[in-house]
Design a protein around this nucleic acid. Structure first.
Lengths: 353, 353
DNA sequence: TATTAACACGAAACCGTTTTCGTAATTCCA
DNA sequence: TGGAATTACGAAAACGGTTTCGTGTTAATA
């Protein structure tokens, strides 16, 4: 052995001071220190002052991990979302983070990347004690496979779970969604009221519950206004990557005077193509999108769009989760789950009349 | 049976099975179970098989928290960024998350919201054992105040830290930045080469090192091409919120034939105003922005911009951090820190000639 | 003066692991 | 057959806290 007998690191690292350190230094027991720092009645004012002063001096901070182990509570929330470079998820996350933080919780985030396997792996990584509960939005693949065993396992273990936006009926848990169908209905209604009749729906080719719900609203609005639903007026685009030729083909083959897109990017693409084909927005073709992101705000013309109020959604999800986490101790009572519906808003800009 | 009928929760919650449970059930000691699950040589094949089978059956998973406490390693990385609803930070985060995950790390994210206080609080929350290291980008306020004591404390405790993009010389640690000055120089050079001479710089009014570096590149390029720097050609805008009238005023008062903006949103605003004032892009006025986000790609005309390669930046930051975390056990050797420079790329689109 | 109550503190268990070290039982070898 | 080596396991400490319960000392009371 080269290093000197007292084995400590030779560097000047301040090791974190522990209760044991304080106890040793002040010649009292660990329990006394612990109690003194908690201002326990049991300890004399004298000792408390000494201990607290010493703790302050050495900048004592209790070790979170130790406390977590003891309390079986981490004050961490696990968030699993399909994508992070995505305006909607980002805003939801902001809502979660803000609320969680205000309640003293930290947020561990995992990205499933729309993959079932990653979603499962991430859940398993976090479910072994790292977090007190989950907030998540299902990956595209998970929705397609319709396999929710990982969610079941987690809830059966008693770990609270809140699903948002991309949810499933298969799992009993708290949920937060927006009124997709109703707002899609309202959007299409608005187009119809402005005189449009040949209304296209541009949606994802992946299976998403949200797209489905929006399509339902679209169809319902048509039906209620005696406009026959035309399969050819539905354009499905790959969720990722662009399909410029497909869009071009669509607008060449169909006479369209309005478009409802299930997201912002689709809307921008359509807008570009429509303009390129020499049509005017909104006079010739009106457009409404989903998601009130930068694109909608700053495009020319600016885009009428459905604001999903992601931040509120996130805050509510976090609130529901923390409530469950903190009251989990209850006995017997049958668990009861809520589905909170966020009212989306149609933001009217220049792409509609 | 694992769930002894007494005292446990009456609900059907599967309590997580622990080593102790397995030990009790199989009538061996906890140590034996632990070793058997690790396939230790010490344990007979017989016992190992029994234990492993039992563990599998009851879906045993070691408790992360307990392991963290024992190992003094959490396999968690703390990320503190000023904003999450922001394309650049989001891409960096994606890089961090992907790399960290591939190495078996989870990411805890906190948002400072450009506030010094929140940054400090977040650091303190995480520094008490929750994470093995930090990756962060300084908040606007922190850069303004020039107060880095929270960073100092953390590094003095031996917690590895990697700063990215918004960094400071005051702290010795690993850093990842882009070559802001050089790329700004290149951008301005490109404008000059295309015949532009009256080049504006649109920058933030908050104090950011990155803005400063970009301004340096801008000035250097002017100087090297014998274009006198004109204070009036610099427009500073509030980092948050829009200042439409300020922009309008600027372009009314100054004859400008090219603009370099330190971000995407400024560029879009300028573009809108320039078009509104009847000038053509890029013929009358060329524009170059920073950040290759959706806006740059989908604006009309599309925006020539500086791609910062956030994802790569994040991956490298994570790699640097994990390297430090995992070799931290070293003795004596003087710590050595690197500053990694990511080469930004100018993406030429329609807003320049 | 004897009994009791209040006070101030410490010992120890516990949370769920890992790991070192000790040891009983078996096997090996001469 | 006796000693050594090997095998297979368990006890216990440790990680850093919290908390229950016990106890010695002093002060109050009868």
């Amino acid at each position: 052995m080269i290093c000197s007998s007292d084995n400590q690191k030779s560097s000047i690292l301040k090791r974190k001071t522990t209760l044991k350190d304080i106890a040793r230094e002040l010649d009292v027991s660990i329990s006394t220190v612990s109690k003194a720092l908690k201002n326990s009645e049991e300890i004399s004012t004298d000792t408390k002052e000494k201990v607290q002063a010493f703790a302050k001096l050495y900048n004592y901070r209790p070790n979170n991990i130790a406390i977590s182990l003891k309390n079986k509570r981490t004050r961490n929330i696990g968030v699993i979302i399909p994508d992070i470079v995505h305006h909607f998820f980002t805003t939801v996350f902001r809502g979660i983070e803000k609320y969680a933080n205000s309640r003293g919780y930290n947020v561990i985030i995992c990205v499933s990347d729309e993959s079932f396997d990653k979603e499962v792996i991430n859940m398993e990584m976090l479910a072994n004690g790292s977090i007190d509960g989950f907030i998540m939005s299902l990956s595209a693949e998970t929705q397609q496979k319709n396999d929710f065993n990982h969610l079941k396992e987690v809830t059966e273990q008693g770990i609270p779970l809140v699903l948002f936006d991309r949810v499933t009926d298969e799992i009993e848990c708290d949920k937060v969604i927006i009124n997709d169908k109703e707002i899609a209905y309202a959007a299409v209604k608005k187009l119809i009221d402005s005189g449009k009749r040949k209304i296209a729906l541009v949606t994802t080719d992946s299976y998403f519950n949200v797209s489905k719900r929006r399509a339902e609203g679209y169809k319902a609005a048509l039906a209620d206004n005696e406009i026959p639903f035309d399969e050819k007026h539905v354009l499905t685009l790959p969720y990722r990557g662009i399909a410029k030729t497909k869009i071009e083909h669509f607008f060449n083959e169909n006479v369209i005077d309005a478009v409802l897109c299930v997201n912002e990017v689709f809307a921008i693409h359509c807008m570009g193509m429509i303009q390129k084909l020499g049509m005017k927005i909104p006079e010739d073709v009106s457009i409404i999108g989903f998601t009130d992101g930068l694109l909608s705000r700053y495009s020319v013309p600016s885009l009428t769009t459905v604001a999903q109020h992601g931040e509120r959604m996130g805050a509510i999800a976090a609130q529901m989760l923390i409530e469950k986490v903190e009251t989990e101790i209850q006995e017997n009572e049958e668990e009861t789950y809520r589905t909170e519906i966020i009212e989306a808003t149609l933001i009217e800009r220049e792409s509609t009349i």
